[in-house]
Design a protein around this nucleic acid. Structure first.
Lengths: 225, 225
DNA sequence: CCAATAGTGTCTTTGAGACATTATTAA
DNA sequence: TTAATAATGTCTCAAAGACACTATTGG
């Protein structure tokens, strides 16, 4: 068999929205290389694992697998100098989770805008994850993956704000999401967000696609400086 | 270093449109495994190659690298049973080339609709490539990558027909592509396609994105049966 | 003259963009 | 009463969808 042998890892770009800010889950590396620097969580593919299996296991080891979070493959990175230990190919994955009370495992939630210097080529993987998430919010109902099982339209709208850097008009946004069949299922209950009028609660319907898409301003202000 | 070691390959989903039909470049395998069956062209990553480099080299070895064809990473496939020789991860790539006078190298152009049984998991990789190409024609100017350096609007429209399985209305299509700044640059010359009125020739402009996108009928007839 | 292809204009309809006020609750 | 948040309707405008005829060439 021609060609080199590679170690194969999976890395995770885990996003959540905390206080209206898109955050990514990072770990501080304890061992070299890049000891003390921040990196995406991840690890090597084991045994007979497939890639998504390995990514799911890593997610579980972080403490995030209780329920079915969104997880998809992002892309592979194999530059020969990306890891000083040798030839390591990593398959980046994108995971979207709701805001959690505490950072899972030993990780920390860092606003994406402040995650500019990362170990390895993780800044590039993160940038690709951000772009993927932004694009998918246009064509899919995936914003709900950032929300708890029940949520209001306002919460959903703030997801878009955090990911895109622009706050959609509340009336147009409401019109769009409520007129997409199967996106939002009303629960009939309301919830008060502290003070102010309580909002109507929904949970995710079976719809996965937005037709036609909700296009972001291509020239919108970018929350990653 | 924990985890198995993998051989890493790149496989190519090379599309062209021949006689109005979306075709994929395949090879007949000579050696086991899957000797005699059809497979995507590809090979192992060598030396200090990055993934795109390896895919570009494979494209060159096929005889397709003379000019800059479109080439992008599609995704990685690493199911433990995908190759009986052992643990091999392959990174699928998508390449789009204009219709060529002869099949390059030892390959054959097969209509995608007839490429249902392939070696390894290549049917899955092909299916993902088809879906990627279809989606990208909505949001990008990539259809021109299937065209020779100079082409008519009719030719471009037939690309959409071949990839999507639906023929856009000529007036609406013309309106859309000509009103996208930087998509089509008129050459001022005309060409006769056998008989009938000659068409105006264009070449690709610098635009890469279509804003807003040209959406395909989500319920369109699927040319892959 | 006929067959084949290129090229074009208008009306209708759908959906996005912009915009301000009222409703409901906690403090 | 005030402050905070949720909810909603209309007009305008941009773009897609539908639709048929004329122009130009080769045979």
């Amino acid at each position: 068999m021609r060609g080199n042998l590679f170690a194969v890892a999976v890395d995770l770009v885990v996003f959540t929205v905390r206080d209206g800010v898109l955050c990514v889950l990072l770990r501080e590396r304890e061992a070299p290389p890049f000891a003390g620097e921040r990196a995406l969580p991840g690890g090597f593919v084991r045994g007979r694992e497939d890639l998504l299996d390995a990514a799911g296991r890593e997610l579980a080891e972080i403490g995030l697998a209780i329920n079915g979070h969104h997880l998809e493959q992002l892309g592979s990175y194999a530059h020969p100098d990306r890891d000083p230990r040798g030839r390591i190919l990593t398959v980046g994955h994108l995971a979207l989770v709701p805001d959690l009370p505490e950072p899972p495992g030993e990780g920390l939630w860092l606003p994406v805008a402040h995650a500019d210097t990362l170990a390895f080529d993780h800044a590039q993987i993160l940038a690709d994850g951000v772009e993927r998430a932004r694009a998918k919010l246009e064509y899919t109902t995936l914003a709900a993956a950032f929300c708890p099982p029940e949520f209001t339209i306002s919460q959903l709208r703030r997801i878009y704000e955090a990911v895109w850097g622009t706050l959609p008009d509340p009336r147009n946004f409401s019109r769009k999401v409520t007129s997409t069949p199967g996106f939002l299922v009303p629960t009939g209950t309301k919830v008060s967000s502290g003070r102010g009028r309580p909002g109507q609660l929904f949970h995710r319907g079976p719809a996965t696609m937005l037709h036609p898409p909700m296009l972001r301003d291509h020239a919108a202000s970018d929350p990653t400086p």
